[in-house]
């Protein structure tokens, strides 16, 4: 069985919550990151995350919930997002976002596309595929920047482990 409309809107609204938080996290990091080039990278990507949230938020309306409807993920996953937000050091911020969190988010988006009916839910699929193209570009931006200003990637196995420990992130229906 494919996903129902209710399953779809819950997943899309959860992704929207995450994209809004990523917008806010990169926004909070912008004035508190010293390196100018990294600051500019965050400034640019804030709007990418905002646009993703906006597209997803328009889709929630089509799936019979209010426009720009967000759904908080499972509590333990919110903790992982907040651990990302709490990173202070520039190298760690870059690694946490571009090496751990975005690749994990990409996998979750792909899992959604695999799980849904590509035909009936094509509007969601098109949005997610556009987001995936953006996320790929954003990772490339970050990698090129790190090579240019010689910021070394910092392994963050604990954050990666906590993220990947969640097979599902949509909060259980109350």
């Amino acid at each position: 069985m494919s996903l129902t409309v209710n399953d779809r809107v819950r997943a899309i609204a959860t992704f929207r919550f995450i994209e809004v938080r990523l917008m806010e996290i990169t926004a909070a990091w912008t004035p508190t990151t010293a390196e100018m080039e990294v600051k500019v990278l965050f400034g640019r990507h804030i709007f990418d995350f905002a646009q993703h949230a906006d597209w997803l938020g328009k889709r929630t309306f089509e799936l019979r919930k209010p426009e720009q409807y967000s759904l908080k993920p499972a509590e333990s996953y919110v903790d992982v997002i907040e651990a990302l937000a709490a990173e202070e050091e520039t190298g760690k911020r870059l690694s946490a976002l571009y090496d751990v969190f975005i690749p994990a988010l990409e996998s979750r988006y792909r899992a959604y596309v695999d799980a849904t009916d590509r035909l009936l839910d094509e509007p969601s699929v098109v949005i997610v595929e556009r987001i995936l193209i953006d996320l790929e570009r954003m990772k490339r931006d970050a990698q090129r920047l790190r090579e240019r200003i010689a910021v070394v990637a910092v392994p963050l196995p604990e954050l990666a482990r906590r993220e990947s420990a969640h097979s599902a992130i949509v909060a259980p229906q109350g």
Binding site: M1, S2, T4, V5, E62, R64, D117, L120, D121
Partner: peptide, 9 residues
Amino acid sequence: AVLDAILAD
């Protein structure tokens, strides 16, 4: 399921 999706649209 097909009709459920159609109805939303």
